[in-house]
Design a protein around this nucleic acid. Structure first.
Lengths: 228, 228
DNA sequence: CAAGGGTATTAGGCACGCCTAAGGATTAGG
DNA sequence: CCTAATCCTTAGGCGTGCCTAATACCCTTG
């Protein structure tokens, strides 16, 4: 006579959905088990297992075909966006209200996002003035899941040197985030890109002298857009 | 080669320690399995099971003897006080910074207390000005576990009618909390107790006309102290 | 177009925290 | 002091989410 919850709705499920959401990208590509396993830090077998659970039951959270990867179902997408909303609101909250250094907001938000109530969500949203972006420059999904597309590209996609504006920085690597911060590379900052591919990416906040050379492996963590 | 964590430190362990802490009271009485089971909403067998885990290992968290109940060990007490600190700081935070109604702070704090970092703890503590009491009037343990004894008694312990000050109200029953709030019964408020035992407890905030009659079963939820 | 390498899935197990059912301990009453 | 009711513990099981090892699949390459 206990609450029948089958599965669904646990912390772990949240993590899978969020990871699939992130890996799908805006092109909604099918995500492979291995990619998920790597991102989540679990064995591939565990991923297969979970995907089968997520894909079964009434209103499955993912569309899954053996050996062909996985995509979020509409229900899964809805849930993923909720969690992303929680996560990014929390990041904004930690950053702006509790004065966290930017490189620490991600981990804390990652833990708390699963447990805050709708009331909490609404209260911090209100307190922050219904923000549209988190401190990394990522768009915060609206309550109904709407989220404006970001028109931006990663540094690695850039062909020509020039002046751009920092759109967003990845929240995945806190050490890198700290370095970027030290160089003034934060969302909204104008930057000059001098060298491109091959030699690594040299970027510099226009107003500053200090230049930063990013190897290709890290350059993917910075997204930029053209100045207007 | 995964992190060996044996047990210890999980959400569930936290809940047990906190429950034991609450049931021990200031007299540090041994707590029975059934009392724990009732409080935690689990089967008695589950309690026994968990107690045996908590009592084993190096640096056990509880002192436990078959059939004779359980008490917190020094390590368990330390951990319990940490959690209580988290809980009460969160309550104060939700109440004061996020404008929660008092009857809703408990449940939210109950979920979040397990997951906030030391940084989070410190930040809200600072933001609140290092408060010493939560919104229910309960003392917030200091970082080192120190906690001043509350000198107060429950309404049910009162023998004579008279004027008192509300010391604290229980956070366990949100419906009651709402009623108490409606009658102005909040920590620090002066109250008059007119009827005692037998007939139920009639209390009234001095400045207000509305009187409140509490059956014995609810009167234990209000602690009072004499006016200076 | 067969084979091999990489990827994905199945099979079998483990720790956790819970459950029910059954048996044992304790303590109150007669 | 012994019996009965109550309380507590043991035994055995389940779901979740993870693991490793073994197997199956896919697909590219020679």
């Amino acid at each position: 006579m206990t609450t029948r919850r089958v599965n669904s709705n646990t912390e772990s499920v949240d993590d899978y959905l969020k990871a699939i959401f992130a890996l799908e990208g805006s092109e909604r590509e099918r995500v492979t088990s291995t990619a998920l396993a790597k991102r989540l830090g679990v064995a591939p077998a565990s991923v297969t297992n979970m995907l089968q659970k997520l894909a079964s039951g009434s209103s499955p959270l993912v569309e899954y075909e053996l050996h062909r990867g996985v995509r979020l179902s509409p229900a899964g997408m809805r849930r993923a966006l909720e969690i992303v909303r929680h996560h990014r609101l929390l990041e904004a909250f930690l950053y702006q209200i509790l004065d966290y250094p930017i490189e620490e907001v991600h981990d804390e938000a990652e833990r708390l996002e699963h447990f805050i109530s709708e009331r909490f969500e609404d209260r911090i949203d209100a307190k922050l003035g219904r923000p549209r972006f988190d401190p990394h420059g990522h768009c915060i999904p609206a309550l109904d899941g709407r989220m404006s597309k970001q028109i931006s590209q990663t540094l690695t996609e850039i062909e020509e040197a020039g002046t751009y504006v920092v759109d967003s920085v990845s929240d995945q690597d806190s050490a890198l985030l700290k370095r970027l911060k030290a160089h003034g590379i934060t969302p909204g900052a104008p930057i000059e890109v001098t060298n491109t591919p091959r030699e690594g990416f040299v970027i510099r906040v226009s107003t500053t002298a200090k230049a930063l050379r990013l190897p290709r492996s890290l350059a993917g963590a910075v997204r930029i857009r053209s100045t207007r």
